[in-house]
Amino acid sequence: MKRYSRELTVGGALVLLMISLAIFAPNFFDTQPMISRLASQMPALILALGVALVIITRQIDVSIGSQFGMCAVIAGTAAAAGVPMPLAMLCALVAGALMGAANGWLVAGLGLPSIVVTLATMVIWQEVLRLWQKGLLLSLPDGVQWFGMSQGTGQAMVIGSTLLILVLMAWAMKNLSSGRRIYATGSDAEAARLAGLAPKATTFWVFLLMGVLAGVGAALNLVQSPQIQPNSGEGLELKAIAAAVVGGIAITGGRGTLWGVLLGMMLLANVNPALTHFHQPPYWEKAIQGLVILLAVAADGIRIKKQKHLK
């Protein structure tokens, strides 16, 4: 139980939030708005799952928002040029993989600190996007929104595929050798090297996978509106990191579960809608997000200190 204390705490907080909403603002749970809201939160959740893997490896990636934006515009442009929908989505994934591989090579191959590398690539992709799109909205052809199906079906598909990815990833992290290698690398890279687990290769693939997931997130975002903004990914990196850290992914690497990330994302993503339902101004979102990151990190710090003290 102690191992999952963070998941339980966050889950408890989420339940409390929901109960108080149910009492004081019951129309929060109106079916259609709730499903729409849920669907719109799914792309960020996908990013959070990816960045959780990065953090478990004891790295960080702040370029994921920009990657997300790039992938969205690439897929959108392809779709607008008449490329069939599945192929356009594939473009997003490939673009994401390439951008992720670039980060992975710089971090794992050259041994550069991931925070500075991804800070730089964040700006690079953001600027490429700006030069390319000049801030203009990109209109999408008709067949794209909701995969050319009804809104309800489309939303169900977005939510369903995200949950499918979550379940698959959570299962793989728990049961596949590759998943355990990620935990091992983040827990102690040197021990991983001695055990022949190739921590550098693991780090590279995690960054690459992060890129692919940015592509997936972008694709799932793309289908939700008739046009896309080139800056659609701005600030998403912090949202994703906050959700991961709050959900119990330790910044010191090697700890945490993707189920915790789901809870963390649900809690954070609902803070703002909850604020509006409580008739509070929504401007506090970013500040709360920052505060929550600090609290989660401090809680981890205290845990580590206690553990050291015990020995």
């Binding site: 960080i60 702040v62 912090l238 990191i241 906050a242 506090w284 979102e285 970013k286 500040a287 709360i288 997000q289 920052g290 505060l291 990151i293 600090l294 990190v297």
Partner: peptide
């Protein structure tokens, strides 16, 4: 990174 978000948010 946390205070980056916190300060801008404030």
């Amino acid at each position: 990174l946390g205070t980056f978000s916190l300060f801008r948010g404030l």
